[in-house]
């Protein structure tokens, strides 16, 4: 009798495990990744909740955004430290994809592939996605990085211990350890500017208005209008970071 119950309980256990893992697998496949997750489903509150829009069709790859960011935020000029940078994607006729970003694009792009071999080429400006479910905030052991009530992910450089967990956690590679301060550094969405009502340096400097910054709670605002009028995607939606950086005309090749 005892033997029987043991047997059936093991079978039951295996059934439950199979059901749970199978269910998880099926739900992860059937539930589509929502690119506009953070834009459509906002936390409660009345303060502005900031997001960013980048129009790849308008970007001319001048990387003045990357340059202005370095000037405004005292980012080291060496070609290794960036809060904001531009990548050039070139899809060749043979299907090969080349990604280039010499010094983040600051010194200009020189086309390495001859015109006749190019199927398509485009620029992708990159920066912090100011995720609403930030992996970098979650891993900080001391609470030195946090999300402000406006949805801006900030670093407390006086409290950061420079362990570098957040640098590894960011799926977008948007953080670095500052070589002099030895603390984590990242895009603050120019918090010192937006709190005074001025646009972030990269947005203000963009010569072709390819970058939009705005309040996701403002239904009449520029950013919400941009999201409604264009087909926007986020980078790595499968990571469920709740990214608030929305790209128009983003090709699937971009990682």
């Amino acid at each position: 009798m005892n033997l029987k119950t043991e047997k059936s309980s093991r079978r039951q256990f295996l059934n439950t495990v199979a059901l749970l893992t199978g269910g998880l697998l099926v739900s992860s496949v059937t539930k589509p990744f929502n690119g506009l997750l953070a834009a459509s489903n906002k936390p409660e509150g009345n303060e502005p909740w900031y997001g960013i829009g980048i129009d790849i069709e308008k970007c001319i790859g001048c990387a003045r955004c990357a340059n202005a960011c370095k000037e405004e935020n005292d980012v080291p000029r060496e070609p290794f430290y960036f809060r904001s940078w531009v990548e050039q994607y070139t899809i060749k006729n043979n299907g090969e994809i080349i990604v280039e970003s010499p010094n983040g694009g600051i010194d200009g792009f020189s086309q390495s592939v001859p015109d006749e071999d190019i199927f398509k080429s485009f620029f992708v400006p990159k920066m912090c996605n100011h995720c609403s479910k930030s992996p970098c905030v979650q891993v900080c052991p001391v609470g030195a990085t946090f999300e402000s009530k406006e949805g801006v992910v900030l670093v407390d450089s006086n409290y950061c211990i420079g362990c570098g967990y957040c640098v590894q956690a960011c799926p977008y590679g948007c953080r670095y350890i500052h070589p002099e301060k030895k603390t984590a550094d990242k895009c603050s969405l120019c918090y010192h500017r937006i709190s005074k009502g001025i646009a972030p340096a990269c947005m203000e400097i963009c010569p072709n208005d390819a970058r939009i910054f705005g309040n996701l709670r403002d239904k009449e605002g520029e950013l919400v209008k941009f999201l409604k009028e264009h087909t926007c995607h986020v980078l790595k939606p499968e990571m469920n970071t709740g990214s608030k950086l929305f790209y128009n005309a983003l090709n699937q090749e971009v990682k």
Partner: peptide
């Protein structure tokens, strides 16, 4: 100021706000 608004130093918000604006428009 730790824990004033969340699991972080509340003063850090003000420190971030007080940085120099360099691009004047």
């Amino acid at each position: 100021s730790f824990g004033e608004f969340g699991h972080y130093r509340g003063l850090a918000i003000i420190e971030n706000e007080n940085k120099q604006v360099k691009y004047v428009g």
